[in-house]
Design a protein around this nucleic acid. Sequence first.
RNA 1: GCCGCCGUAGCUCAGCUGGUAGAGCACUUCACUCGUAAUGAAGGGGUCAGCGGUUCGAGUCCGCUCGGCGGCUCCA
Length: 642
Amino acid sequence: MQVTLPDGKVLELPDGATGADAAAAIGPGLAKAALAVKADGEVRDLARPLPEGAALEIVTDRSGQDALDLIRHDCAHVLAAAVMELYPGVKISIGPPIEHGFYYDFDFPDGVAISDADFAAIEAKMAEHIAADEGFDRDELTPAAAIDLFKGEDQDYKVELIEDLVAADPALDHVSLYTNGPFTDLCRGPHAPGTGRIGAFKIQSVAGAYWRGNADNQMLTRIYGTAFFKKKELEAHLELLEEARARDHRKLGRELDLFLFDECSPGMPFWQPNGMAVWNELTRLWRAENLQRGYREVKTPILFDVDLFKQSGHWDNYRDNMYFTDVEDRPMGLKPMNCPGHTRLYKSERRSYRDLPIRYSEQGLVHRHEPSGTLHGLMRVRHITQDDAHIFCTEEQIEAEVQAVLDFGFALYELFGFEPVLELSTRPEKRVGSDETWDRSEAALQSALEKAGLEYVVNPGDGAFYGPKIDLHMRDSLGRSWQLGTCQLDYSMPELFDLTYTGADNAEHRPVMIHRAMLGSFERFIGILIEHYGGDFPFWLTPVQALVMTISDRHEPAAASALAALQAAGIRAELDARTESVGRKIREAELRKVPYILVIGDREADEGTVSVRRHGGADEGAIAVAALVDRLSAEAVPTPTP
RNA sequence: GCCGCCGUAGCUCAGCUGGUAGAGCACUUCACUCGUAAUGAAGGGGUCAGCGGUUCGAGUCCGCUCGGCGGCUCCA
């Protein structure tokens, strides 16, 4: 038989040769280093016979993610082996590798709860199995035999998995099992030859997770861990996690006095003056960009008669997550979104096709009772300020409008150096509108994406109840993904609110609504910005841009006049005239991450200058106050982050 | 909402197996008037998240509630 190697060479092997045979045929070093093979893109065990004619690659510890996935999957099996020995009666479910590690989900016997305190014992037991370098042996059984096996061990979850495999493919003739040491698991594979290939591992956390990701099911205990080939790599990874935690916006928000949360209003941030400075700069940018792109700013109430939400469909879909109150016996609700309000503006006059598109933007304050367990700093709040907009247009205008929205988003993100991931979400099960309407609207969004040549992933069934959407996602410092912008196409709301316009044919037509947000919410966007910049905002966004400080009391008049000149030019400047040592005042300014520290002593006071020190830098020497004002004014303009 | 963990001064934390609260920073006052990351001294500040229970005695043990953290589900 023959296989082709990555360099194009053809390797001749005896019939029935395995991956291990191929590695050995190439060289003894590679035979030793081999973990698995990649045949026509599929990673397979070394011990399995190779498919004839395959394009073959030997997977070693240098093979990047493929290799890491392999040993992390191995490590998940080792974890399961250890847990089964330590906790008799535990039921196992699944244990895959994930982006930075692996997990395994267990159903522990009643009364057994796993916590951090148990990790050391689990790790010790795992280390024994790894030291023993137990082989991973593959077996194939008929589904019926495998079901019998797992039934005999009371492993209900495994039985269910096999039954589902059979239901999906009644002709299924075998399933594969892998055994390492005392542990046998239903598993598709592949695995490395033995547990000894796991160079370094760590159990990281424990969490609840629903069986099969369904909240109606049993909650299992998920144990997370990670593994690497070398101890140094593991340590470097853990160090990276530590550094990421230092950039957590909740920590920086407190340290830099940007915002805070208080028990008296869970999930609703209190903005401090520094945070408001960032908010206001962002608002200024948002307002200018909207104006330039043909949006007109509006403001609508936050409290509405609930009938409005019954009409919009939000009552049916989201009333459990809304806040209600009675006003003189009239039931009213805080708006969970701005669109119903904007439809009132649209309907306030008769509209002509000549008026369209109408683009309303609003810094819309909405309230959503997010479940307590989902709150997360500024990223997931109950009091949400959306940079919302609704575009009312004709069907012919959709594509150009969607295109313009995407352009808008990318122009904004470029300013911050963001590279968002695009997702197209299609019709959900719970929805309004006909299938024909959904066909048209999904096609319109897809076509806008394709024409713009943008890469995107499809999330089937993830659309809003009234229409499909394109979402733009960003990651936080710890790699968690958050939605920023969204562009949602909606044929339903115009129908439900009976919105019309008069066409060129003098007949009434139905407009289409596009819901869009670019920043997502001011809260979340600022949270992302804090982590993205690690608190070192670009100059135009910095809360306190310059701090003037005196060396002694007698310099205060000169400092006050420098401060006044900066403030007159719109620079956010403060004065530190305390009779503290210069060293202390510099230190505190550095910790506050103030970009410009301006020192005034005898020399500067005499000459009408200030000595400049940049954040994290050293004394740059004196500069005339007027020249400094010019320099900072020029810098205080939004410019793309490199 | 679900699973696990956590909640001590404004912040970061110590307080062993129950014996009536402590440090650093911050804050206040006084002295120092200082040249680029912490001047010194003194002082104030906590119903140990809240409520209930066990106990001679609870920050410490148990239960509930509230809030937070890590996940899961959800996210118009």
